[in-house]
Amino acid sequence: MTATLISLLSILIGIAGANLTGLIFKKYSFGIIGNTIAGVFGSIFLIKLIGRLGFDPITIMQSGTINIKLLLINLIVSFSGGIIAVILLKKLKLIMNKNY
């Protein structure tokens, strides 16, 4: 598994987190397409922000094999990024609609 595949897997997990949040909490749903877009950007942003602590895809593959602990942390952060993005975007939408 290369660093590129780990990055793609992280994005897919972020999409799953965003869509699962939309399914469970209907008030945070933007539909499948909106949740998917939020999941992509949320997972990428959080992985880039927190991944500097040592669980970015390059560090996971640095020894030539997959570091499972770092991969699990990466996937959990990515899943959380999808959830956080959907919630924050819904809050932003409510704030912007309130001003009009």
Score class of each variant (00 low, 15 high):
Thr4Met: 14
Leu89Ala: 05
Thr2Met: 04
Lys26Phe: 00
Gln62Val: 08
Leu9Tyr: 11
Ser7Lys: 09
Leu89His: 02
Ala85Glu: 05
Ile68Val: 13
Lys91Arg: 06
Gly51Asp: 07
Leu12Asp: 04
Ile37Arg: 02
Gly34Ser: 04
Ile95Asp: 12
Thr65Gly: 10
Ile11Pro: 03
Ile83Cys: 02
Gly51Asn: 04
Asp56Ile: 04
Leu9Thr: 09
Lys93Cys: 03
Gly81Tyr: 07
Ser80Asp: 09
Ile50Val: 14
Tyr100Asp: 10
Ile24Cys: 09
Ile87Ala: 06
Leu72Ala: 15
Tyr28Phe: 09
Gly54Arg: 13
Ile95Gly: 08
Gly64Asn: 13
Gly39Asp: 04
Gly82Glu: 06
Ile58Thr: 15
Ala38Cys: 10
Phe25Gly: 03
Thr36Met: 10
Leu53Lys: 13
Phe55Arg: 03
Ser7Gly: 14
Leu70Lys: 12
Leu72Met: 12
Leu75Thr: 09
Thr65Ile: 05
Lys48Gly: 14
Gly51Leu: 05
Gly54Cys: 09
Phe55Val: 04
Ile50Ala: 15
Phe25Tyr: 13
Ile32Glu: 01
Asn74His: 14
Leu12Lys: 00
Gly64His: 04
Ile6Leu: 15
Leu12Met: 10
Gly22Tyr: 01
Lys26Arg: 13
Leu46Val: 02
Ser63Asp: 12
Ser78Val: 10
Leu23Arg: 12
Gly31Arg: 09
Leu94Asn: 11
Phe55His: 03
Ile24Arg: 11
Met1Asn: 15
Leu5Met: 10
Phe79Asn: 05
Tyr100Asn: 13
Ile83Thr: 01
Ser29Tyr: 01
Leu71Glu: 12
Gly51His: 06
Ser78Trp: 03
Leu71Gly: 08
Met96Lys: 15
Gly81Ile: 03
Leu8Arg: 09
Ser29Asp: 12
Asn19Asp: 05
Thr2His: 14
Lys69Cys: 08
Ile95Glu: 10
Gln62Arg: 14
Ile87Trp: 03
Gly14Asp: 06
Ile73Arg: 05
Ile60Met: 10
Ile6Gln: 07
Ile47Asp: 07
Asn67Cys: 08
Ile32Leu: 08
Lys93Arg: 11
Leu53Trp: 15
Phe41His: 06
Gly54Gln: 07
Ile68His: 12
Leu8Asp: 07
Gly81Glu: 08
Gly31Thr: 13
Leu72Ser: 15
Ser63Gln: 10
Val40Glu: 05
Phe30Asp: 03
Gly42Ala: 05
Met96Leu: 15
